[in-house]
């Protein structure tokens, strides 16, 4: 009884809830792997999924809270132990330019330090 009642209801809603075909696919999160260098505190969870539109500046603000680093202390992120990307580098840019393949998945590897490293 109830199943026959539910059937027309279900079919009427499915007609209206057809997803618009023009909707762009949701941007994929960027997988980020962190590694501490020097005296930087160690993270329990080293993997993060970051929105591609997030910038390194906003990520740094979040990681400061994670790592409990006070605002008057520094936190630097490095790519390939060579350079610090500019603060308004988005994770989309990091993924496009500097991602590496580790066990099949594309990841952005960042090293973090509380003192300037690598000259």
């Amino acid at each position: 009884m109830s199943s026959t009642e539910a059937a027309p209801e279900g079919s009427s809603t499915s007609e209206t809830v057809v997803p618009p075909p023009t909707e762009p696919p949701k941007p994929k999160k960027v997988v980020v792997k962190l590694k501490n260098i020097g005296d930087a505190p160690v993270l329990k969870n080293k993997k993060f999924n970051v929105n591609p539109t997030d910038t390194l500046a906003s990520f740094t603000a979040v990681m400061r809270r994670h790592l409990k680093i006070e605002s008057n202390n520094s936190l630097f992120f490095y790519i390939d132990s060579v350079f610090c990307p500019s603060p308004d580098t988005t994770f989309e840019v990091l993924a496009r330019c500097y991602s590496v393949r580790s066990t099949g998945d594309e990841v952005v590897e960042l090293q973090y330090s509380i003192t300037p490293a690598y000259g």
Binding site: T55, D88, T89, T90, E92, R96, C97
Partner: peptide, 11 residues
């Protein structure tokens, strides 16, 4: 650079 969005860059 487009408007005041963060810059874009690629390989």
């Amino acid at each position: 650079y487009y408007k005041d969005e963060p810059f874009k860059q690629a390989l």
